[in-house]
Amino acid sequence: MPEIIFNGPAGRLEGRYQPGKSDTAPVALILHPHPQYGGTMDNKATYYLYHAFAHRGFATLRFNFRGVGRSQGEFDQGNGELSDAASALDWLQSMNANSTGTWIAGISFGAWIAMQLLMRRPEIQGFISVAPPANLYDFSFLAPCPSSGLIVQAEDDDLVTPISIVKLVEKLKAQKSITIDHETIKGANHFFENELAQLMTSVNNYLTKRLTSGR
């Protein structure tokens, strides 16, 4: 799990990178929760998501948004953070020129950024969106959502209203040509602090299903 520094639009960005198991391994980018509320690439859910992909042989990257840890710059209300994520994906793809696929995953604020990047990068073929803050940020840009993916919500989320995620899922499920899986983790709070095992069971089951089907 090498520590890396790569260039972002506001300066250097700090990350952790696990090379893929083969030259053609797919790549996965993992985005952490809100920087102004303690979110970092070492957030437990971010760390677990990173390892879920890395253990499957993906070339996997998680990194700190600008102003977090050793990453340069200052918080930019999501606009700069989206640019950071795009630069991170560029770096990841440049390290894996023969990759056969691209995935993205994010938690909370990171899920919002991930879904925006999904709309801008048609090569992204799958996503994991954990506790997307559908009542706090505008997700109307997902019109239509270009890729199938998994949305996971916490039953006892104290920041994101469950109904807002349900409405987002229903909107996306109405689209043709993609499939949205939706899981609710019972008893979990916004960061799944005591239910990480259940969260990762849902994530791993989904990845097994998608990767086995080859879609």
Rank of each mutant, 00 (worst) to 15 (best):
M95S: 05
F63I: 00
Y47G: 00
V166C: 09
S83T: 13
Q93M: 15
L207H: 04
G8A: 04
T179L: 07
F141H: 15
N204W: 13
Y137I: 13
R16P: 03
D138N: 12
S164A: 14
G15Q: 05
T60C: 01
Q125K: 14
Y50F: 15
S94V: 08
G80W: 09
V27L: 02
F63L: 04
D181L: 02
I4A: 06
D181R: 08
T161A: 15
P132S: 07
I113K: 03
W103K: 11
E195H: 12
E81T: 10
S177P: 05
A97T: 15
L199K: 08
G69H: 07
P35T: 01
Y48M: 10
S129W: 12
A154H: 11
N205P: 05
I4M: 10
L136G: 09
L13I: 11
R121Y: 06
A188W: 09
N7A: 15
S147N: 06
N79D: 13
I30T: 05
I165D: 00
T46V: 15
K173D: 04
G73D: 08
V166M: 11
V130L: 13
V152K: 06
K176P: 12
D84I: 05
V27R: 01
S71T: 07
D42H: 11
P33T: 03
F53P: 09
L168T: 01
Y50M: 06
A174N: 13
L136A: 14
P9I: 12
G20D: 04
Y47N: 07
D156Y: 07
N135Q: 10
E81K: 10
S129M: 12
I124V: 04
A111D: 13
F191K: 09
L117D: 01
F6N: 03
L117R: 01
T60D: 00
I113M: 02
V27P: 10
V68M: 03
N194P: 07
